[in-house]
Design a protein around this nucleic acid. Structure first.
Lengths: 153, 153
DNA sequence: GAAAACCCTAGTATGTCAATAGAGATTTGA
DNA sequence: TCAAATCTCTATTGACATACTAGGGTTTTC
């Protein structure tokens, strides 16, 4: 699994929506500024997440986005699969996006068996991690002091 | 980690070289035919793996490629890092290919902390898996009967 | 009815990927 | 010694994806 910039933006935006879940909707503009994401690009991404049923929107002057379901119900797996496609390192071990590969005997391919392990390891993490979990981590991290390495003169 | 076709070919070629480690060199032509890999493309890949010190070559009429080190000493991690770059899903959690990301506070990024876990899980597998291990699995799988689903009329 | 928001489609610059191509260098062995 | 087989090096190509940018449209509120 490699995350594109688009996928990264999606997760960052959803984290913001998660943190503000109890509030009303959040404007694209706000997310864009908070997270350094190009506004017009973010529009597309959020719109796309709407088709996945992850967020919902309100139009008009008091409009914006919010999560369509409870943060506990939205896993990273669902988001990443929708934005990036397969979680597996090669498509011949993907469950959701399987494609035959060109190797002589897929059913007895040694590489495939290792790639299955990789896939399992990745899936295990992203399927158990929800937006709620992300928010919790975020709240914890906010309470920690800044890492001194991150200060620059 | 997503494997490109190039990376897949590299692993398949190295598996062949691993299985034939005790023999003399193996010709590109042979690997290409056995593994359904375009010959000219495979040339590039093997040449590239030479610069990584993974294989060595012999030129001329009895030429070909062989592993430069014992199969036990070559991990998938080394191969994949050389061909594909970072193992990490985002470059801000990569050790070998770190790059700063655009998020407001990297040191306290919740997404980053999950991505670190993913990275660790992937690295753990590919760093412990060697060409020798791959060969062993291959030999085991060869002894198994063909999966009936793979027969087609 | 005007402003502020989301919505939809299209375009575009850049880069990557998977080859393909051509010509050169090295070795063997007849 | 020469021809054939092999690896070596560099360049090019076509297709596609990525990360935006742009323009106009629709909906809602005040």
């Amino acid at each position: 699994m490699k995350l594109s910039v688009r996928g990264e933006y999606a997760l960052r935006a959803l984290l913001v929506l998660g943190v503000n879940y109890d509030q009303s909707v959040v404007r694209i503009q706000t997310i864009s500024e908070q997270q350094n994401i190009p506004k017009r690009f973010l529009e597309q991404i959020l719109n796309d997440l709407k088709t996945a049923g992850v967020v919902e929107s309100r139009r008009g002057v008091a409009g914006g986005y919010r999560l369509a379901r409870r943060p506990e119900e939205i896993t990273l797996a669902v988001i990443i699969r929708h934005i990036e496609g397969a979680l597996a390192p090669v498509s011949c071990v993907s469950e959701s996006y399987y494609e035959k590969c060109t190797c002589p005997d897929e059913s007895r391919c040694a590489i495939r068996s290792v790639m299955k392990e990789v896939r399992e390891a990745v899936v295990k993490i992203v399927e158990r991690t929800t937006i709620a979990e992300l928010c919790e981590r975020w709240r914890h991290l906010q309470q920690e002091p800044l890492n001194p390495f991150d200060f620059s003169i």
